[in-house]
Design a protein around this nucleic acid. Sequence first.
DNA 1: GCCGTTTTCGGCCCGACTGTTTTCAGTCG
Length: 576
Amino acid sequence: MPVHNEDIAVIFDEMADLLEIEEANPFRVRAYRNAARTVRGLGRDLGDMVAAGEDLTALPGIGKDLAAKIEEILKTGSAGALKKLHKEVPASLEDLLKIPGLGPKRVRALYQQLGIKTLKQLEKAVRAGTVRELEGFGAKTEQSIQEAIAAHRTEKKKRFLHSVARQYAQPLTEYLRNQKGVKQVVVAGSYRRGKETVGDLDILVAQGARSDVMNAFVDYDEVAKVVSQGATRSTVILRSGLQVDLRLVDEDSYGAALHYFTGSKAHNIQIRRRGQQRGLKINEYGVFRGDKRVGGRTEDSVFKAVGLSAIPPELREGHGEIEAAEKGDLPRLVELAELRGDLHVHTNASDGHASAAQMVEAARAQGLSYLAITDHSRRLTVAHGLDTKRLRAQLAQIDVLNANLKGFTVLKGIEVDILEDGRLDLPDEVLAELDLVIGAVHSHLGLAEREQTERVLRAMDQRYFTMLAHPGGRLLQQREPCALDMARIVEQARQRGCFLELNSQPQRLDLTDVYCQLAKAEGVLVSINSDAHRTEDFADLGGGISQARRGWLESADVLNTRPRTRLRKLLRRTMG
DNA sequence: GCCGTTTTCGGCCCGACTGTTTTCAGTCG
């Protein structure tokens, strides 16, 4: 069985948990967590890197010891050090750590003094009232543990699609903005970094003088529960289950607080360490040399204090953005306004809800100057997919449409099913009449990695194949991505000169950031498409842009930032 | 366990809130 980066990260995280319960050196624990993060965020497969004889200690946070452990895990699937830890600390204690309010110290106390190893045993002890007898525990702690177990049982802490979180964030920020004394309100955290899902909302409020905004916040009528409330920081749970943290700062600290609250944690740690090396202390109130404030009113001033140009929020994952900023190598990230067209659009000929003319009108309203009509092919009967005859009828309609359009072009395309054996669902003679052919996997999603990869590679090898739609096939929170060797797919795209889609549907956002970077490194152009089925779906392109930015893409890395003539040339090259 | 503009030892990001305390530990972000 191949060992994936994620498998290695999981082992390192597990070791960190167990070491923490053992009260190991906290910095050693941190080293394992850092390593897990590094491994997880790596664009390339560690197995490939080792096979290529690369030096893993060049990776941040990976030294001689961890490099050896990675090689051991790649070879054997596990780590001897983890097995050794399991002999000392029961693995089931990790489950206890997942209960909010229970950290390593308390879990250790529960285990050592009450012999509690499992959630079930903990629940029993809590009911019996024995937990409150322990030093450092009390009746209130006991009760909150009981509630936390119940919550843990019924629902896993759920993450929200960015697009869903926005529906809660917008009215709440509007409400806060209307409070007296409030100067600025912004949603920071992973939301601001444009992640595809968010676990909570981190809202930053800057006040002029003293304001009563904290009370207003906990009184907001969608608040189901106040988790904590202080003078500068409060946490609530909304009725939807979404957790919201509010941080209140003075205007002087706004930039520092915004930077701190935007994260990511890994990025913040690196920035603070950098500050430290320069004799600076950086916290959410500002940048300080001794007692003297030397920055923090704006976010840029924080970066400036540590000798860096401003880093866009989408890049702040601790994946090399600081090194890039240091060398002046930060990408100029692609922006929504740079998109000239959309190359994946459905109409009511298949499973869309509007006519081609209506979709064109909506695209124009978004400021686009071309779109490709790409309905489904016949194999997808549930979507009323087109056969050769119906496709040709549509092509004639598009000719009529184009004849009546000025300054806008409708391209002829299809989202053709990639059949199980890698053939395309329509014959070459009709595909040859199109401007572009988007291939997509809609069936047999569960094939093993080797088969799935070969299938897609065969499809990409077909004479008329322009672009691979939603390559991973994932549906966020519903369906895992297909098992696919993306490195080979990207390589094939490079050789064939074809393109990869970044599908902007909020539940797809596929390519992921990591594969955007891979495509960019290989010189494969990415097309940011809406996959619109309704006129309002063009608004989803904003989410695609966020994802592309998180993948370090610049305008030049994106196919549909090209003007029409240039685009046509690129498409023709692929269509042989 | 990692790392180096105090470089092979001695550091390692920083602060808020809660509960159980009466000055702080634990947890969280």
